[in-house]
């Protein structure tokens, strides 16, 4: 056997070992990721009296769906879902509109001070959200928006990050397109509306998902600006459920699963765009 062959065989064995270790590690990690969800589902399908009387590993069969029935009577889940959906959709479309318009202007229109203003825009992305909580509360109070959904919507319909993202995307269109549009008598808005937007669906979907998911999952800002029960979002409602029905685990787990479900379903429907949005999240700072 020539030394060369031994070498390559050694490499194959080495590769196999590395792959086995990799798979073992990944499987172990994946189980750690999934078990909390699985355990929540299993708990939510137990009868309340069985939660503590049996071991954690025991699975009730047939499952008891009563927690999923009771929860509607304990908190107005449908109202919370409606509130959340309303705010999330308004913010998503508002943010897409203002960001794509501003991104378009930064990318394709010349005006004095444009590049300085854009640099300034980028700089505002560095401001951490925590610093804005207190002053924005005061701003919202002066606008009379405290304890209304406007407090959640207004501050989120504009986005420096969204503008940045749209600008980068619009820069990639060839300038010939613009010339052709101009010959056809388009004004800048018509060019944006008829040519750029229809060709920007992937980036709009990604940005829209980020906005939607951000609002759906947001907790701290709604906690600060909303106080009446009827205005609550899903996350506030769930947090309230926890403080009211502490240790009623079947109910709490059913609540957690129900509020997670829409986003998880959305995730499976458009996973590609979600992954794209993760890559941008770091940039958002």
């Amino acid at each position: 056997m020539s030394p060369k062959q031994t070498n390559s065989r050694l490499e194959i064995v080495q590769g196999q070992i590395i792959k086995t270790i990799a798979v073992t590690f990944l499987v172990f990690g994946a189980i750690t990721m999934i078990i909390p969800f699985l355990w929540s589902v299993i708990t939510s399908l137990k009868s309340a009296e069985n939660v503590f009387s049996h071991s954690a590993f025991w699975i009730q069969f047939p499952p008891d769906f009563s927690a999923y029935k009771q929860i509607w009577a304990r908190i107005p889940l449908l109202t919370y879902a409606g509130n959340t959906l309303k705010v999330a959709l308004l913010v998503t479309f508002g943010q897409l509109a203002t960001s794509s318009l501003a991104g378009f202007a930064f990318a394709r229109i010349k005006f004095p001070g444009r590049d300085k203003l854009f640099f300034f825009y980028i700089a505002t992305m560095m401001v951490p959200g925590m610093v804005l909580l207190i002053p924005n509360f005061v701003v919202m109070k002066n606008l009379g928006a405290i304890n209304t959904h406007w407090a959640l919507i207004l501050s989120a319909v504009g986005s420096a990050f969204g503008t940045f993202l749209m600008r980068q995307f619009f820069l990639s269109f060839p300038s010939e397109l613009e010339d052709a549009a101009k010959l056809d008598g388009c004004n800048p808005f018509m060019f944006y509306w008829h040519i750029l937007l229809p060709n920007s669906k992937p980036i709009l979907t990604t940005l829209g998902l980020m906005a939607f998911q951000g609002i759906w999952n947001d907790f701290q800002w709604p906690l600060i600006v909303l106080n009446s029960a009827s205005k609550r979002t899903l996350q506030l409602g769930l947090s309230y459920l926890m403080s009211e029905y502490y240790t009623d685990w079947t109910l709490l787990m059913a609540g957690a699963i129900l509020t997670l479900l829409p986003i998880i379903l959305l995730f499976f429907a458009v996973q590609k765009y979600f992954v794209q949005s993760f890559k941008f999240t770091g940039l958002k700072g």
């Binding site: 999952n217 997670l260 986003i263 995730f267």
Partner: peptide, 10 residues
Amino acid sequence: ISASVAVSLM
């Protein structure tokens, strides 16, 4: 993608 409130509960 999971909301932090649900994660806290779990």
